[in-house]
Write a protein that binds this DNA or RNA. Structure first.
Lengths: 266, 266
DNA sequence: ACACTATGTCTGAAATACCAGACAAACTAA
DNA sequence: TTAGTTTGTCTGGTATTTCAGACATAGTGT
């Protein structure tokens, strides 16, 4: 745990508070929750303080307030803290507040139950791709992923659909240069990526094989809103070695369901 | 404006609400989110301000901060605001952070898929009962309920299990007198309720027929933690007219699954 | 034993976040 | 039109919150 060199992570890129700057409690809360989400595991108050660059005393006060509100909760007995029950309730309220989202969730459930495969609902968050919800396939060796984790758009099948409305110039501005580099070091050529986007838009689906990792075959189909825009995709995450007939069967099913969820627009 | 429809949430936990006093932003945030949860629908900023008893200017500032963080989001174009995407992500992180909860969710999914009935995970929040998660039965006429809504404990089957560790005196202190009154005006006798609790604890399940409403038969089974305490229940919400054989079949299934989720303890 | 580091709580003091209230603009109803 | 309401924004002043730092205690490693 203790590294030799004591590099307290100087806050990442951009405007950071001058030494001895004061911040609002609200902003601290927001930073803290986002830090916790990125970290994806219970943290101790001291580490949170470092992560968000806040004084320890302040952090304790904030954390205690949030604990009392059940927005955070103690995990274990060693001072670790993570999201609390209230968050679950707020989040649930969010995802059910409109009928369209509810239909999407039901479809997700049905697709998962019928096929036994991992199904995801995806979208964008800023200039990254995120899994908004998912149903993991059952069985001991599932391929699964965490909701809320941000991934470079070019790594994903869904990303190729979600960017369909942009022209090349917009795309160049939108996607950070580093995001073309895959985890294994390969680089995706911009021209190829742009061509993929065009193709995906035309055929109304997108597939990637062993792109972000070696063992998955992803297929995505667009959910269109009332104006024909694509903000969400439905997608299957399959083992790469899934045989072709099964794949096309699943793709057809996915496209049909995604079309069923698209709003009026036609 | 007539404030008939809007209840003011006086802050319960923490500092006392002296009239016209200054409050911290954090506390305002907490009150605001709780108010929004209770209201269960998008609200306008002005109404929120009234609900939490905050000045409008302050409320605008807070809401804008939360909007920027995606903890809230605009709904429609008329200034309505509701929970945002970040809440969904936080909530998802909460409900998956520990393996036990994940197992519970899987069981919920399986139970719903196998039986086609409405299944719920229930617990306490303060001195009220809440549905923590649920899977609604499919079909046009489902019996469903909202996650996060608080209900008086005596109205519920699960409540009878969740209070099993309390003696009569503690129960009397814990449950507000008004909570014995059912929506249709009937009053549950305390003695009877206490007896129900004892019975539920002995038999390891609890059932209620047409209690909180006229059309549901509820059955609940306890999930025990490592110390044998009951913090959660699994429960079916059935139509009252479900035939007896089907009911006992479901009850057996429910008890078996809940037992499977209970932790080592013995 | 020692030296170090981290936790959780308190305190005084100053920077500022919150509040009251004003304002223009939009909307409603007569 | 007028009169009344509500929305969203802005400003100045001050009551309060954030901050730095100290402290006792607990844990870790040599």
């Amino acid at each position: 745990m203790s590294d030799g060199a004591i590099d307290v992570i100087e806050k990442e890129a951009g405007a950071e508070p001058r030494n001895g700057e004061r911040r609002r409690g609200i902003d601290r809360v927001i930073m803290l929750l986002e830090a916790l989400l990125r970290h994806r595991a219970p943290m101790r108050v001291g580490d949170m303080a470092k992560m968000i660059g806040a004084p320890r005393s302040t952090t304790y006060e904030i954390v205690n307030s949030l604990l009392e509100a059940e927005m955070l909760e103690n995990v274990g007995s060693e001072g670790y803290v993570y999201f609390g029950r209230a968050m679950h309730l707020f989040g649930w309220a969010y995802s059910h507040h409109n009928a369209h989202y509810r239909r999407i969730i039901e479809t997700l459930d049905r697709l998962a139950a019928e096929t036994g495969e991992t199904v995801q609902l995806c979208g964008l968050r800023g200039n990254k791709y995120v899994v908004l919800d998912c149903r993991d396939s059952p069985g001991p060796f599932r391929i699964s992923s965490d909701v809320g984790v941000e991934v470079p758009i070019p790594w994903t099948a869904s990303g190729r659909l979600l960017l369909g409305h942009m022209n090349e110039e917009q795309l160049r501005d939108f996607i950070p240069a580093g995001d073309y580099k895959l985890p294994d070091g390969r680089i995706i050529a911009q021209a190829e990526f742009f061509a993929d986007i065009a193709t995906a838009g035309q055929q109304g689906f997108s597939e990637t094989a062993a792109l972000a990792d070696r063992f998955t075959w992803c297929m995505a189909a667009p959910i269109q809103d009332g104006h024909g825009a694509i903000n969400r995709t439905l997608c299957f995450v399959l083992p790469v070695d899934t045989p072709e007939p099964r794949r096309s069967e699943l793709l057809a099913l996915l496209r049909e369901r995604a079309r069923g969820l698209s709003l009026a627009g036609d």
